[in-house]
Design a protein around this nucleic acid. Structure first.
Lengths: 223, 223
DNA sequence: GCTACTTTCCTTACATGTATAAAAACTCGC
DNA sequence: GCGAGTTTTTATACATGTAAGGAAAGTAGC
């Protein structure tokens, strides 16, 4: 789609009036200023001074646009930094860095699930993750499996939590969860009944890192 | 929304011509026969002999309809069964049962993230999960945190894998992942380059249970 | 300059979820 | 039977993503 810079750039055909970069930049501006829900193809088109369908020559569809936005975000926030040298801590830190970067733009939820590998700009962290697992004694295959488990956990945490938050924001009616807890049979579900009133604060806590550490520990303990 | 049976059922207002149950049943038929992508509100309306907007009196919106479908599915497949008595195995088995049930209808992905608690009909398994963790020696708080970690991991696995599969099905152009691997710098990312050609088969494997066991082990090891 | 070709852009059209407001169909008090 | 009230159904309309086909704007060969 987009050649590396030294590509000779064939000078034929109608010259473009907008560029992919311009599209992505404008989209990012709209998203950061007004939120992702205001990003529509029509709005974006008028903002770059074009028509909706013209965008589709620079972007396959809206989803790809969001992927590009995510990539853009990753490029800005995810820089190779100092990671702990101790391999296990390196794994935790790399995963946490990815997690943190993703949490910062919760709108990517729709896209997050795009692939089992993240954007180019997160590759370095993925490398650190896999490498760290290998340094901990896992085989390469095991390390990749471990990475995927960590990615599942991370993606799931973000997706579940941000959609839950989004739901809470928009709706004032009782949650499905509240309904469930309300009609809970304490004889049949003693444990759940026991925590019913504490569920809200309990699930509000950010326990990502705890779970991550547990997962990593478990992955390593399996030899 | 839906009262328990002994509710006196006020007999006032225009009598309904369709019921929520009928709507859900028809929706399920469409989904199982032709796939979720064929389930549109118009189609569903014409199938039950009504108009699109009439559906909205029995269902808040399409998403709620999907949640109901999921609940319906859970009710059919998730029955309390024999679980291992050993608590750790019970936890694994309960999570795996939920996972399996969800994998059977991959279309719920859009809905899966709805809440951090599943449908009523999965409650029994959640109870077993939390109870098993407590029996393993965790405090109740820790057990709930553990349940949530397991849920994140499970939801993430399903969401990521089914969207990846869906993408593969619809598109013949190269994946983002393939593009990334193609232009991989082996010096900068030695580990990833090392597994680049094995990535496809590696990620095709079903490693849910392995990761699950690792996670549970890690959660328990944290005392 | 003219024709062929290529790339980008624009117009139109459609499917979809759903908001809004009105109409329809019933019960109840009289 | 009649108006008031309530619930369900309908008609209409809008915003959105995007498919399809053609128009515009350039280059290359002649």
């Amino acid at each position: 789609m987009q050649q590396p810079s030294p590509a000779p750039r064939k000078a034929t055909g109608r010259p473009p009036r907008i560029s992919r970069e311009e599209v992505v930049d404008t989209a990012r501006r709209i998203v950061t200023e007004e939120g992702v829900e205001r990003l529509t193809m029509r709005r974006l088109a008028s903002e770059v001074g074009s028509t909706p369908m013209a965008l589709y020559h620079h972007v396959r569809n809206k989803e790809e646009l969001l992927v590009l936005l995510l990539d853009d975000h990753a490029a800005r926030t995810l820089r190779p930094t100092e990671l702990p040298s101790e391999p296990r801590e390196r794994v935790v830190a790399a995963a946490a860095a990815i997690h943190e970067a993703l949490c910062a733009c919760p709108w990517i939820v729709e896209v997050l699930t795009a692939d089992d590998l993240m954007s180019t700009h997160a590759l370095w962290f993925v490398e650190q993750l896999v490498d760290g697992l290998v340094d901990c004694g896992l085989s390469l295959e095991r390390a990749v499996q471990g990475y995927r488990a960590i990615w599942y956990y991370t993606a799931g945490e973000i997706v579940v939590r941000t959609t839950a938050a989004r739901r809470r924001a928009g709706n004032d009616r009782p949650t499905y969860r509240e309904q469930v807890f309300a009609g809970l049979d304490a004889d049949e579900y003693p444990r759940l009944a026991q925590v019913a009133d504490r569920w809200e604060p309990l699930t509000a806590q950010d326990t990502y890192r705890d779970g991550l550490r547990a997962l990593v520990a478990g992955l390593l303990a399996a030899h």
